[in-house]
Design a protein around this nucleic acid. Sequence first.
DNA 1: CTCCGTTCGTGAAACGTTTCACAATGGGTT
DNA 2: AACCCATTGTGAAACGTTTCACGAACGGAG
Lengths: 340, 340
Amino acid sequence: MATTSIKEVARHAGVSIGTVSNVLNRPDTVAPGTRQRVLDAISTLGYVRNDPARQLRAGRSRTIAVVVLDVANPFFTDVVQGAEAVAESRGAVVVVCNSGEDPSRERRHLDLLEEQRVQGVLITPVDDGRESRLEQFIRRGTPVVLVDRGTGRQNRCSVAVDDVLGGRLAGAHLAAMGHRRVAFVGGPLTIPQVADRCAGFRQALAAAPATPEPVLLGTRGLTVAGGRGAGEELAAMPPGQRPTAVFCANDLLALGVLQVMTLRGVRVPTDIAIIGYDDIEFAAAAAVPVSSVRQPREQLGRTAAQLLLEEIHEGDRHEHRHVMFKPELVVRQSSAQPRG
Amino acid sequence: MATTSIKEVARHAGVSIGTVSNVLNRPDTVAPGTRQRVLDAISTLGYVRNDPARQLRAGRSRTIAVVVLDVANPFFTDVVQGAEAVAESRGAVVVVCNSGEDPSRERRHLDLLEEQRVQGVLITPVDDGRESRLEQFIRRGTPVVLVDRGTGRQNRCSVAVDDVLGGRLAGAHLAAMGHRRVAFVGGPLTIPQVADRCAGFRQALAAAPATPEPVLLGTRGLTVAGGRGAGEELAAMPPGQRPTAVFCANDLLALGVLQVMTLRGVRVPTDIAIIGYDDIEFAAAAAVPVSSVRQPREQLGRTAAQLLLEEIHEGDRHEHRHVMFKPELVVRQSSAQPRG
DNA sequence: CTCCGTTCGTGAAACGTTTCACAATGGGTT
DNA sequence: AACCCATTGTGAAACGTTTCACGAACGGAG
């Protein structure tokens, strides 16, 4: 189908193209009769605006991009939904790009986004080095908000959740329930989130009376399989030495641990209590509903989008801000029983 | 940053803009010396192509869109990843839009996509009526491939998975394991996928000797909560009358049923066997790993993208095709034990 | 020395909008 | 009747590319 342009609409309605454009963008400046004639022409011709042309003229697009580490991760899908809600309410369009934790894919996406003249970007970067593509991107003037990563730099806004506090919540809860032998499951500690959660956990235990250092059970990744591995270690311990509670760096690990406990006849929470992190849907739906530290994921996305839109609006006179959210402990059956 | 255009690059390199364009698009037609001078200018100026301008000239964009019912659903994230793999290998860009099962959001997305002059669309439509926005979209000439929905119409390609066959696989397996009292959990039956799975299940049972009609346990939606409801019904039955096996319309339902069984002391698979559908990650990770009917999700996305790219390429002379994939039964512990 | 064919590079047109200075029309006020 | 203002519509310029017909320079064949 030959794309119909504003020009044909103008001819069909017997007006100039300027008038058609006015009908489209400032309807009140054109007389009702004319306006109607133009609208009729538009609908009979099936005219559709040409966005690339508008953007060329305008110098920028109406879209903002979200670049995530993993589209399949519920954490990010929720962040995206929050961002979308805000963006759409302000007439912006959101596109989602998946870096898959691959630096080169991230670079390609940033290349493309810059060519597309996006208004701004929400990103959880995989490469945030001093000479990264992202740095260059920011220097060239596209507004960027960091999501859940590296609040270090000053040339951008960021939003994150306080992982140290999350760890503290878990630790304090277990100590209060009377647990004395506890373990932390997670790794590698090079992931900032894991390290922070562990640190907070240890802080809380150190603050509680009569609770020794937690045992550290390292895992290779934050997956169900990793949790199963740690679970086997736990199951193999003699009951008298086995921790009576474990805190897992995320829910997938917790589910893995839980699965092995069930299999090996270790009762949850009677013999061992479990706390996860993230509060994904399946934490509540597990065989024994799992206690978990919940992050305000949608809120994270909403706030990130708001900061971005602010920066886009304010331009030069923008002050970068760093917003930190507080996580919240959701106690379920897996850690509900007080100890001795 | 004042956006630098091809014009400034030309001035800086002492050539005409036509030459710069040639360096960018047909590097071999320009002498090595000149080419290098232009490339240098590009890098020192930090020039970035203006995509909207290219598109305006070209008349169409390089992007294809995927419109899904729910970004958070693992089924769709896998489909998207498959589509992305194919599209990217052919130099196309993929954008993901989320209709959230809301017809008006779907319409808005289609409006936008048409304005953006996307090359084509992969969609699982929520509104596929005879006068829907989608119909209009197709009539106006944008190639569209339907994903996992309505193979009825002839004016488009489609890809889907054979749900009747999936149901048959589950039924045949349970019958072969010696189950005589069985149930189907799922609903509402107005969802074509649910109805098809149920129909296939019944076919297989009818074909097996001495197996009566399955009991139908309806649910309001395909969620974990729905599964819990059905699970309570099952647990309440006296063991002598309770089905010895259930087939659930998806894995979330199966997980809900499993959870209640564990809670109520009904052993899986000894007292009752369970089969789910979709083979999501958590099916294998459940307390008792759940047997499930696996759909080739990524493959679905890849094929859909291939069909779309074909149609985009072939233009008028394109023959619409309907591809149907076969699902596959993955037997795990929840249904592994033969009966009697 | 002329002519021709290559090889390189040029300049202008075109893509479909938006915007803006300005022209036309038509009442009201003096 | 002259003037002014408000209202409505016009036409052309500009956005940054790509493309294409054409010119300049050059080297070799006759």
